[in-house]
């Protein structure tokens, strides 16, 4: 088990970071190039202000019109993303490692906050999973992969929680935690989770197209939020 741990925190970790950041960068660069050739409409009407408004509102809780219409889902959706991104980046234990590896770290969350945050995230995952199963308009769109991805997203948090609280064998949970996290990070650039980056691009397009492109000669752009 110790050997596996060493591998996962050694070469596998580096490989994960390379694939995660490299994959996102490569996909971004490819799409950028492609957009210059085939998405002239994007560049013709791109506007930083309308793009930002279109992005910013959807980052806020209930900032998007759909979330105001479905406020419970809106809240679950917001908290899910907040915890999903916030906890791993600002967790004390992770920052200690980064300090050790790279010589720098970020401000950290108090452990109890992160601990409760994981429970909030898991509750949100359960809600999103149930919603996918129960609501006909979501179920009809859902594939097995959609359910699997949601569970894969939750896995690092479940295993991390169990490891932190040392239920059962600590090292086993820790190894599983690292493994799940690495698998998830490797999947991101090649799946719909690529929206981590592409969200900004698609929102910039619709914001500029429906906003800036119409917002001239005394007319008003349309708010896409």
């Amino acid at each position: 088990m110790q050997g596996l741990y060493d591998f996962l925190t050694g070469p596998a970790l580096w490989l994960t970071f390379i694939i995660f950041f490299g994959g996102l960068l490569a996909r971004g660069a490819f799409y950028w190039g492609l957009s210059l050739e085939r998405d002239k409409i994007f560049w013709d009407h791109f506007d930083p202000v309308w793009s930002w408004r279109s992005i910013y509102h959807w980052l806020l809780p209930w900032g998007g019109v759909s979330f105001r219409q479905q406020p419970v889902f809106g809240l679950a959706f917001f908290l899910f993303h907040l915890c999903l991104l916030g906890i791993p980046v600002f967790l004390d234990a992770h920052n200690i490692m980064w300090e050790e590896y790279f010589g720098w770290s970020l401000p950290t969350l108090p452990d109890p906050v992160a601990d409760w945050g994981v429970l909030v995230l898991l509750a949100c995952v359960a809600f999103l999973f149930a919603r996918r199963l129960v609501k006909p308009e979501v179920r009809i769109l859902s594939t097995l992969w959609d359910y699997a991805l949601l569970l894969l997203t939750a896995a690092p948090f479940v295993t991390g929680y169990l490891a932190y609280h040392q239920y059962g064998d600590y090292l086993t949970w820790l190894v599983l935690h690292i493994l799940c996290s690495e698998v998830l990070m490797i999947i991101v650039p090649f799946s719909k989770l690529g929206h981590l980056m592409l969200f900004f691009f698609t929102r910039a397009f619709i914001g500029s197209d429906m906003g800036a492109r119409r917002d001239q000669y005394g007319r008003l752009g349309a708010r896409t939020w």
């Binding site: 994007f42 479905q70 979501v138 769109l141």
Partner: peptide, 23 residues
Amino acid sequence: SNSGARMRSWLDICARCGLCADS
């Protein structure tokens, strides 16, 4: 010819959340 960055992104990232239905 329509498979630019926008089309690929749209096809790739639809989260199948179903929020568009009510619109």
